[in-house]
């Protein structure tokens, strides 16, 4: 759910830009460090950004029939870590505004804050926390539960942040009552979408784990898989 161009008053545009920029700058510094040490990671980061863009332009099979798209930030955060994703997300959001007309330039800061910072951070924290849970490394399917909740909460918190942003911008009559109204709308329309994205991310992750566990291994996401003993020789992919 992007905030559209012109939806926020200019004071709030400036405010969210100011909040988002330090995080993005940190992400860029991280990317620079990684690419200086491993130049081969530059094209890979770029294609990952392209992957996030394409993923977000797929239509999500949704239960309510409302059409929406996955945000892909949960998957990205689990794969690359939140700081890198926040920097990639800015570029993706810029492309979405200019190539698809989703979102906008003045609201880029606010959208980056909800989709590129809060969402990925939530996903990453949940995923890392889940790895610490006793027994989460025993059964293969158990990892996927963590993935589901990471993607689910990344999506959900993105919407909650958006609702907060909107009610801060339009606190009429009070912040709480505006929040209640926006949350009411989002709970109906976005909760099923969050579940759908969670399931989709699980399916995607499961396939990647089966087909190319070596990729995940390289990214350092899955020390888990090794312990489970699921790593096999990489199969030829179609």
């Amino acid at each position: 759910m992007h905030i559209y161009e012109g939806f926020l008053p200019w004071q709030w545009c400036v405010f969210w830009y100011a909040l988002a920029i330090p995080v993005v700058v940190y992400g860029i510094i991280r990317i620079k460090k990684v690419t200086d040490e491993h130049p081969e990671s530059k094209p890979i980061l770029a294609v990952s950004g392209a992957f996030m863009f394409v993923l977000s332009s797929l239509k999500l099979p949704s239960v309510t029939g409302s059409c929406s798209h996955p945000t892909g930030n949960g998957l990205g955060a689990v794969l690359f870590g939140p700081a890198v994703v926040s920097a990639l997300c800015v570029i993706v959001l810029l492309f979405q505004a200019l190539l698809l007309g989703h979102g906008g330039l003045t609201t880029l800061g606010a959208n980056t804050f909800s989709m590129g910072i809060i969402g990925p951070l939530a996903a990453w924290l949940i995923y890392k926390g889940w790895q610490k849970v006793e027994g989460s490394q025993e059964a293969g399917g158990f990892i996927l539960v963590g993935i589901f909740f990471a993607a689910f909460f990344a999506d959900l918190l993105t919407y909650v942040t958006t609702a907060i942003q909107l009610s801060l911008a339009f606190p009429i009559p009070t912040f709480e009552s505006a929040m209640l109204k926006f949350m009411g709308i989002y709970a109906v329309t976005q909760l099923p979408l969050a579940i759908a994205e969670g399931i989709l991310t699980v399916v995607i992750f499961d396939y990647i784990m089966k087909l190319r566990p070596d990729v995940l291994d390289k990214l350092g996401v899955l020390e888990l898989v090794k312990k489970v003993g699921k790593i096999e020789e990489p199969k030829e992919t179609v």
Binding site: L55, V203, I204, I208, T237
Partner: peptide, 11 residues
């Protein structure tokens, strides 16, 4: 959709 996404990622 999951197959599409994962295959896309691997590609």
């Amino acid at each position: 959709m999951g197959m599409l996404g994962s295959n896309l990622f691997i590609r």
